[in-house]
Write a protein that binds this DNA or RNA. Structure first.
Lengths: 357, 357
DNA sequence: CTGAAAGCGCTTACAG
DNA sequence: CTGAAAGCGCTTACAG
């Protein structure tokens, strides 16, 4: 087996020769620029097709002085650790494609402020980008935005949050509902009793979005109801912006019932872990989300049993590479890309740290 | 964030003009090729220095006709599904770097035949490769091979199997011992009893290597002995090259004990699943390796409970990209890269299929 | 609608 | 020791 360039590798010169035209005409066909006689066009297209021609991107980059702008509009990661992860992946991708005259412009907005989102999308358009990657956190503003994109014929990719009836090139994100089911299954297996008492605890800080959290809980509940008919579930929101209040709230909840398992549908599971540890509660199966540093700590201490993880760096990286490949090679891209739902336990978490890209 | 390229972009032409020489001479200085008068050399070097010149790597790639050969020596995937996976990743990487004049030559050997390995390593050397990726399945032959590589100053990367006292640039593979521990932990959690009876079943076909299998079992046993002191383990090899014999063997084993859990340290767990299903054994926790099609089937049917997976496509892909980056950018590379130990269950397996690269 | 030619920044023979 | 020139595969402006 051998990757033989001399078989696969054919350039516009050779295509021109086969089609009996000049390379200029081949170029016109490839880029849809200028007028080409329909028969000539057909001929050239057919040769391109049957020869598996792929443009030499190195030559293209060298000869073309065009800079290609990609605009990225995502929440900032100030007070918002999660978004630093896709950002990391995006930056890595940006570095890789800068050699090809692709400039990735990252515009971050305050995700508690719709106006800042609108402002950044406007800025994005002003960059005259050839492609856009963004997170449609605000629905109606997002629809306005994609209308503009479609008017201007700018392909866009959705990151982390999806949008119905949108003509996006692709969506990169998580299947949050399914990840909730995974969590429920793990809990069921670990408890292995017919009448478990399960807490769903949602530690929140005032501005946090509950988009994914709600979907995860939905999947979690669906699974439980179907597979553990006699389960008892207590659902509580814990405002952790004030330590004392949150402790009191937890104390109250635990007075009424003692849970067998706890499901935390967001990354702030470390907060619950800390409280369980401080209050010497043991033997409760605890499941949460995201392998952030604090969660790794409580996993090592065996207070957190499972973390569900969804490779946000990967999603960021892949979304940029996808728009790059789409623009460069006109490659078809899957309309939807869900990253794997990783199950993390004490014994394997180390292999997921700094390892995702 | 923005990458501004237009600052101080100076090329050899401009350097030549400033130094009052031709671009050929500038090139000689840059690459230390050919003779240059000491004063001329100084002059040019000084201009390069003060102008922050960096070579345009895109132009370099385009103009240089030098083809860089990378030799890959791995087992063939005839009758050996596993090796089709790294192969897939390798081919994908090969496609990506072919534009940079990198040719990846894949040489596959029969992994039950040391001579075929030796022959392929010899062929690899004849390609005059700038880098090598290979799987050192035969120890002494591998040491001979790396001695040749070191003599010829060819950097090499190990794939899937590691080698002590080797000066490889990097190793891409699995931490098989740890993955066995993960399996044991999952089994412990699922059973949750103090005196479980556990079978380790090893379905083999005559020529299969037991390298990883042995390490997985080692990790598995270590974890059990430490964490379930009263466990009873029965360890059996099942030759599945003959259906009837293997069925009889299994029947015999199950006559003596009824296991609570079964650990299969290789990908042929589907064979055990099939047998359990046919004989109507239920409620036995079954753990195996690798998300191959047959295993997905039995996972869907809830006969296989867990699969441990190690992204072999990824390993193949990354090993090639690593040698490419090493040669192109002289980038430092981690000496060792373990892929994550993925835990696959019925609820998440779909997200791992065709999704790894 | 089409072709011929210059040029992107470098490498590589070749000639002196 | 050095320079002049061709060429890598593509894009781009120009001429017809």
């Amino acid at each position: 087996m051998k990757t033989d360039k001399n078989i696969n590798k054919i350039g516009i010169k050779e295509i021109a020769r086969l089609a009996n035209v000049s390379i200029g005409t081949v170029d016109r066909v490839i880029h849809n620029r200028g007028q080409v006689a329909p028969e000539t066009r057909q001929m050239v297209l057919q040769i391109i097709e049957s020869s598996n021609y792929t443009p030499n991107i190195v030559a293209r980059t060298l000869s073309s002085k065009k800079e290609t702008n990609i605009a990225v509009v995502i929440p900032d990661s100030i007070n918002n650790f999660y978004w630093s992860l896709p950002l990391k992946g995006i930056q890595k991708a940006a570095e890789e494609i800068v050699h090809f005259n692709f400039n990735v412009h990252i515009l971050t907005f305050d995700y508690s402020d719709e106006n800042s989102f609108i402002q950044k999308t406007n800025e994005a358009i002003k960059l005259n980008p050839k492609g856009i990657v963004f997170s449609p956190l605000f629905e109606s503003a997002s629809y306005n935005f994609i209308n503009v994109c479609q008017d201007k014929n700018i392909p866009y990719i959705l990151l982390d949050v999806s949008l119905n009836n949108s003509k996006h090139v692709s969506y990169f994100g998580q299947d949050s509902v399914q990840s909730g089911k995974v969590a429920a299954k793990l809990l069921k297996t670990s408890l292995n009793i017919n009448n478990p008492i399960i807490f769903i605890l949602k530690p929140i800080i005032k501005i946090a979005s509950t988009y994914h959290s709600d979907l995860r809980q939905k999947g979690f509940m669906e699974y439980l109801q179907k597979n553990i008919p006699n389960v008892k579930v207590c659902d509580n929101i814990i405002d952790i912006s004030n330590e004392e209040n949150s402790n009191n709230k937890l104390k109250e909840i635990f007075k009424i019932h003692m849970p067998h398992g706890i499901f935390v549908p967001n990354s702030r599971v470390y907060h619950i872990a800390q409280w369980l540890y401080n209050n010497n509660y043991k033997g409760i199966v605890l499941i949460g989300y995201d392998l952030i540093e604090q969660n790794a700590y409580w996993m090592e201490k065996e207070v957190i049993d499972y973390l569900i993880c969804q490779k946000p760096e990967d999603q960021g990286y892949k979304s940029i590479m996808a728009i790059f490949n789409f623009l460069t090679y006109k490659k078809n891209i899957e309309n939807k890309y869900y990253s794997p739902i990783d199950i993390i336990i004490k014994e394997n978490y180390k292999y997921y740290i700094n390892n995702s890209i």
